Amino acid sequence: MSLAPAADSAETAMAKLSLCSMPLVLAIILLSATHSEQHQSSQAQTLLRIVRFLNFPTVLNSRNIYKDLCNFEANSSLAVICYEGNITQLHIIGEKDAPLLPRNFSIDSFITTLVKLPSLKVLTLVSLGLWGPLPGKIIRLSSLEILNLTSNFLYGAIPLELSSLTTLQTLILDDNMFSGPLPDWLSSLPVLAVLSLKKNLFNSSLPNSLSDLENLRVLGLSHNHFYGKCLILAV
């Protein structure tokens, strides 16, 4: 008894199945590409809103960045780094001694827009005229490893909510107007290696909890109003 016809029939069926499956595969590829394009477009719109909040600084005049965020050529003022199509690093550095942003600027609305980039691991916003108390909602950027807000006009206490950013390795808030005591909860940041709070208005003794930061390698506290006993840190 010959099995050839049955084998031919099976091969024909497989060929038909393969041909029938091709449109589905193509559709999945096209849908995936469309979703990726829409995602990048959404991130570009978010970045444009951020630029509007910053009052269109001259360092962000390039229109090319909004066309292809993840392949934009970085410069000394602006860098956008992506991983798998998501913005993971955003560096915006304004001109030295940038003035205060206009009175209608809202730090709360600005941060609300910023957290629409939830994959951010590194955020650098230097010399941009930001002013107001830093909103606790910044912790919605739950993957943050480096936060640098140097040379702005941020004031008030460092928000308690930052204690939830357990991945934070570097916190730089130099040259602002933060005030009050240095918070005890800084010791709850388990991987913090760099803490720089120079040129602010802190006014307290140094909390003993600083000595609990086992990974701390850089500590900058100059040009504040600290008093009391010195701490010996194991670094």
Rank of each mutant, 00 (worst) to 15 (best):
D174I: 08
L165H: 13
L173E: 09
Y155G: 06
F202Y: 04
N203K: 05
L206E: 10
L186R: 00
N215F: 08
L195G: 08
T167Y: 12
T167R: 15
L171F: 06
F178N: 11
K198S: 14
S222I: 01
V191W: 02
L165F: 09
L189K: 12
L216V: 02
L219A: 12
G220F: 05
S188M: 07
Y155A: 00
L213T: 00
S222D: 14
L189R: 04
N224I: 03
L197S: 09
S205M: 03
Y227V: 10
V194W: 04
P190Q: 09
G220Y: 03
V194I: 07
L216S: 09
T150P: 08
T166D: 05
L160D: 12
L210I: 14
N208D: 13
L168G: 12
C230M: 09
S179E: 15
L149Y: 06
N152W: 01
P207C: 02
L195M: 12
L213I: 05
T150G: 11
S196L: 09
L154H: 05
F178W: 03
L186H: 00
L182R: 02
I172D: 07
F178P: 07
L186A: 13
N215K: 15
L186S: 03
D184S: 14
F153S: 14
P190G: 13
L168F: 12
F202G: 04
S164P: 03
P159G: 07
K199D: 15
G228F: 12
N203C: 10
V218C: 00
D212N: 15
L186F: 10
N215I: 01
N224P: 08
I158A: 11
K199V: 13
G228M: 09
S187H: 00
S163Q: 15
L182P: 03
L154N: 06
G220M: 05
D212S: 00
E214V: 11
S163N: 07
K199I: 07
I158C: 11
L189M: 12
P190E: 10
V194D: 07
A193C: 03
I158Y: 10
L189A: 12
A193F: 01
H225V: 04
T150Y: 00
F226V: 05
D175I: 08
T166C: 08
E161Q: 15
R217C: 04
L210S: 03
L213Q: 03
A193L: 00
W185D: 10
L189C: 11
E161V: 03
N224Y: 10
Y227L: 10
L195E: 01
V191H: 09
P183G: 09
L182G: 05
N200G: 07
K199F: 14
L189F: 12
P183H: 08
A193Y: 01
L219S: 09
L171H: 04
S209H: 09
C230D: 09
P159L: 13
L168Q: 07
L197E: 11
S196E: 13
G220K: 07
T150D: 14
P190F: 13
N176Y: 03
N208V: 02
S205W: 01
N200E: 10
L189G: 10
C230E: 09
L195T: 07
L154V: 06
Y155N: 04
L182Y: 02
T167D: 12
M177N: 13
L165G: 12
K198V: 15
H223F: 14
D174W: 06
N215W: 08
S211G: 02
E214W: 02
T170G: 01
